[in-house]
Write a protein that binds this DNA or RNA. Structure first.
Length: 290
DNA sequence: GTTTGTGTTGAA
DNA sequence: TCAACACAAACG
């Protein structure tokens, strides 16, 4: 996950203020943490804990105070959902994908990962890119289609049954867009022997201000029971993500993209989508099960 | 010997 | 629900 600038700033803040605090009036006392759910340990490390039903749930110890605070945040998200107070709100505000990842895991599993310090890795892996493409001018042009590189499509996308008549629709939830759902048609064009996303694609391009040279990355989270996003259609639910990174541009700082506030300063703007694939036809669903 | 994290208490 | 504190269990 990318570290938000705010979080970075806060880390910097506590680092500076931590032990060089002007007077520091020789307070030999272990300083209580400024973070929720974080408690000092005798050896200078930091413990994280959260309470549920009158009972404390220990989340492990950490060298960094902020790391402990993040552990608490993760637990809070899993235990209490978005409503719960958190140490770094900005870092989690738009993380619908992370929420889905968490929701698919038992609490005990999440706690275990926090205590073993493996949560970040697990999350990263769950969201790891499975396929990526630098979009071409035609991908963002008037053709209303994105060509998905064949190898990537065959490896990471649901198999397409050419004999099926019904179209395959992929539904995605916009990770940064407040739960907005995008739908694309996914099909194979035998004339060009290409896998393509069609219906809905141009709208996405428009609203995201996607330009040629930007990167679209697809990823897939470990499948889980998933009560989540699913339009009640048949078919195997795969948890997939798509992510766009704006290509860095030299010189002109903005591309004149209207509407959705591209990143200031030209850094990578990340748009991550979460979604469950939805096969509109039972036939497709069956082939997915294979 | 060191670190973890539980027992426990009192405040919010 | 929460953090402070003490200290025994767990660890290496």
């Amino acid at each position: 996950m990318s570290t938000s600038t705010q979080e970075a700033a806060e880390q910097q803040d506590w680092m500076n203020g931590g032990d060089e605090g002007a007077a520091a009036v020789a307070s030999p006392r272990a300083p209580s943490s400024r973070y929720k759910g974080v408690v000092p340990q005798p050896n200078g490390r930091w413990g994280a804990q959260i309470y549920e039903r009158h009972a404390r749930v220990w989340l492990g110890t950490f060298a960094d105070e902020a790391a402990a605070a993040r552990a608490y945040d993760v637990a809070a998200l899993r235990f209490r959902g978005r409503g719960g107070a958190v140490n770094f709100p900005a870092a989690h505000a738009a993380a619908a994908a992370e929420m889905a990842f968490l929701a698919a895991l038992p609490k005990s599993e999440v706690v275990d990962m926090l205590r073993k310090h493996t949560y970040d890795d697990e999350l990263r892996q769950a969201l790891a890119a499975a396929a990526a493409k630098d979009v071409t001018p035609s991908d963002v042009g008037r053709l209303n289609r994105l060509v998905v590189p064949k190898l990537q499509a065959e490896k990471h996308f649901p198999p397409l049954d050419e004999t099926a008549a019904a179209p395959v629709l992929l539904a995605f939830e916009d990770d940064a867009g407040g739960g907005k759902v995008w739908r694309f048609r996914y099909s194979y064009w035998s004339s060009s022997q290409s896998y393509v996303l069609t219906r809905g694609w141009s709208r996405f391009v428009r609203e995201k201000g996607l330009n040629a040279g930007d990167t679209v990355a697809f990823s897939q989270a470990a499948a889980a029971a998933a009560s989540g996003i699913d339009a009640g259609e048949v078919g195997v639910k795969r948890r997939m993500f798509i992510e766009c990174r704006k290509r860095k541009r030299k010189g002109s700082s903005h591309s004149g993209v209207p509407g959705d506030g591209c990143c200031p300063g030209g850094g990578a703007r990340v748009v991550r989508l979460f979604g469950a694939n939805i096969a509109a036809a039972a036939a497709i669903g069956a082939s997915c099960v294979r």
